[in-house]
């Protein structure tokens, strides 16, 4: 049985003449512990879909079920608890708290979990241990994104949602970040959903879902999955 189930998700913005249908009935299933890449051009609806999965946006119709729990039935408080318990978020912009140091930023994530991972371990895994007392503005973009990843994974979430995690990074740093995501998936077994417009990234996924104009154009299991180290674009 699938871990994450999306059933006929529809979403539109605006009304009347200016109404735009962003998602036109998305249905799919994602296995536990897999890496899923949501691929699509700008405006294809991939970020909206990720936000609906993450419970920070609502679908107009359809439902999402995680491990048998439907998010549509939840009120705001329950949704907050759901995110707190199950989800980790990584954004294109790192959104770190500027006046907390690197370790403290990761602790902000740890605080949300009843069984957080060891913060120092995470810092070491992310290669940030020696920078742990620095403030975010003293680090490079890649290091900041690694911190954001640390903040998301420290609570050991069931699902890690990554919205264009390499969008603001150069090639080498992007690969470094993807390697980390791969490593985390292997080490902790989280389900990872990556939203990206970078076609190459699909190669590291177990599952690829291609969106265009709010509908799924392709949804397939990647039989030729490659490690990040072999990825080129």
């Amino acid at each position: 049985m699938s871990y994450l189930e999306l059933c006929n998700i529809k979403k539109s913005y605006g009304d009347g003449e200016s109404k735009t249908e962003v998602l036109k009935g998305i249905s799919c299933e994602i296995e536990k512990g897999s890496i899923c890449v949501l691929l699509g051009a700008s405006g294809s609806g991939k970020s909206t879909l990720l936000n609906i999965i993450g419970g920070i946006d609502n679908a107009d119709s359809g439902y999402i079920s995680i491990d048998g729990e439907k998010t549509a039935d939840m009120n705001e408080k329950e949704l907050t608890l759901y995110r707190r318990k199950h989800l980790g978020y990584i954004f294109q912009m790192y959104n770190l708290i500027p006046n907390l140091n690197i370790k403290e930023n990761i602790e902000v994530g740890a605080y949300l979990s009843e069984n957080p991972l060891d913060v120092d371990d995470i810092l070491k895994t992310l290669g940030l241990y020696e920078h742990r007392h620095k403030l975010p503005n003293q680090l490079s973009g890649g290091q900041q994104q690694r911190t954001a990843i640390g903040r998301a994974i420290v609570k050991n979430p069931d699902i890690l949602l990554c919205d264009e995690p390499t969008g603001a990074l150069d090639y080498n740093t992007s690969k470094e970040i993807l390697k980390l995501i791969e490593k985390i998936n292997k080490k902790y077994g989280n389900t990872i959903i990556i939203v990206t417009h970078n076609d190459a990234i699909k190669n590291i996924a177990d599952r690829v879902i291609k969106l265009r104009d709010g509908v799924i154009r392709k949804d397939y299991v990647n039989e030729t999955k490659v490690p990040v180290s072999e990825l080129e674009w």
């Binding site: 408080k77 759901y82 912009m93 959104n95 708290i97």
Partner: peptide
């Protein structure tokens, strides 16, 4: 700090 708050709320911080 809107984006930080958004991230925290998305991560499960309560209002």
């Amino acid at each position: 700090e809107a984006n930080v708050i958004g991230t925290l709320r998305a991560s499960g911080y309560k209002k």
